[in-house]
C-alpha cells in the first residue's frame, strides 16, 4: 500500500477516538471508570481556543521551550564530549566512568531537592534537572557508538598521516553521529518528562506549572489543554531531532534504497 492510501486510515482512527471520547463524556458514563466530571472534546477545544488568544499561553510555551532547549543543548554537547572522552581515553574513563555509573540510576526528577539547594534561582534548577535527564542517554549512546566504530577507518586515517586529533575529527565524530542521534531522541523524550515535572513542583511559569495550576483550581478542561500542549510540543521537538538526524546521516543506507 502506498503512503497516500494510508492517510485516510490514520485520520479515521483519530476521529473514531474523538467520537468515543465525546460519547462517553456526553452520556456521563459511569462504568467503574467515571466520565461524569471528565471534560469532553468540545469543552477542551473551546478552552483551547480561549487560551490560544491569550498571551499567557504563548509565554508559558516560550518559557518551557527555553528551559528544555537550554538543558538539552548542554546535555548534547557535554554528553557527546564526555562520551567520546571516556570511550577513547583510559584516563578519562577511569576518572569519570565510576561517577557516571553511580549518578545514572538516580531519576532526574529526584534531583529537585539537590537543585533547590545548589542553585540560587528556580530557573537554573529546572534547567539543571532537564540537563541531567537528557545527559545520560546521550552519554551512553555516544560511548557505545565510539566503541562500535570499525577499527579499519581509524587505521586508514592513521596510515594516511592523521594524528590523534585527525582521527577524532575525521573518523570518530562523524562516525558516531547515527548512534548519537539515537541518544538525542531518547534524551529529548525524557527531557520533556522532567521539565514538565519540575515545573509542576517548583515552577512559576511554563506549561507544566500552568497544567498543575489548572488542576488545583478544578479547571479540568484547562488540565487537558495543558496535556495536549505538552504532547504537541514533545512531538514537534522529537520530529525536529529526527529530521536533523536524517539530514546529517544521509550516507547511511536507507530502507527501500537497496536494489
Amino acid at each position: 500500500m502506498n503512503r497516500l492510501h494510508r492517510w485516510p486510515v490514520r485520520v479515521a482512527s483519530l476521529l473514531a477516538a474523538l467520537a468515543v471520547w465525546h460519547l462517553v463524556t456526553a452520556a456521563d458514563l459511569r462504568f467503574w471508570v467515571r466520565f461524569d466530571r471528565f471534560p469532553g472534546p468540545v469543552d477542551v477545544v473551546t478552552e483551547f481556543g480561549r487560551q490560544v488568544e491569550q498571551g499567557r499561553y504563548w509565554q508559558d510555551i516560550a518559557q518551557s521551550l527555553v528551559r528544555i532547549l537550554t538543558g538539552f543543548v548542554l546535555a548534547a554537547v557535554l554528553g557527546v564530549a564526555l562520551g567520546v572522552a571516556t570511550a577513547r581515553s583510559r584516563w578519562a574513563g577511569d576518572v569519570l566512568q565510576p561517577l557516571f555509573e553511580v549518578a545514572r540510576p538516580i531519576p532526574a526528577i529526584a534531583l529537585v531537592p539537590v537543585a533547590i539547594l545548589l542553585f540560587p534561582a528556580n530557573e537554573q534548577g529546572i534547567v539543571f534537572i532537564t540537563f541531567a535527564a537528557a545527559f545520560f542517554p546521550v552519554l551512553v549512546s555516544t560511548r557505545h557508538a565510539v566503541k562500535a566504530l570499525p577499527v579499519v577507518w581509524e587505521d586508514a586515517v592513521r596510515t594516511l598521516g592523521g594524528g590523534r586529533w585527525g582521527v577524532l575529527l575525521r573518523v570518530v565524530l562523524p562516525g558516531v553521529l547515527p548512534g548519537v542521534f539515537g541518544g538525542l531522541s531518547i534524551g529529548m523524550g525524557v527531557a520533556w518528562i522532567c521539565v514538565i515535572s519540575a515545573e509542576m513542583i517548583s515552577g512559576d511559569f511554563g506549561v507544566g506549572y500552568r497544567t498543575w495550576q489548572a488542576y488545583t483550581i478544578v479547571d479540568y478542561p484547562g488540565v487537558l489543554v495543558g496535556m495536549a500542549t505538552i504532547g504537541l510540543l514533545g512531538w514537534f521537538t522529537s520530529a525536529s531531532v529526527e529530521l536533523a538526524g536524517r539530514r546529517l546521516t544521509r550516507w547511511l543506507p536507507r530502507e527501500g534504497e537497496r536494489t
Binding site: V152, W153, D155, A156, T159, G161, G175, W251
Partner: peptide
C-alpha cells in the same frame, strides 16, 4: 606515517 600508506581489502573508505 603517510610515507607508508596501507591499502586494505575492503571497507576502508569513510562512508559519509
Amino acid at each position: 606515517s603517510a610515507d607508508r600508506a596501507l591499502m586494505f581489502q575492503d571497507d576502508a573508505l569513510l562512508p559519509w
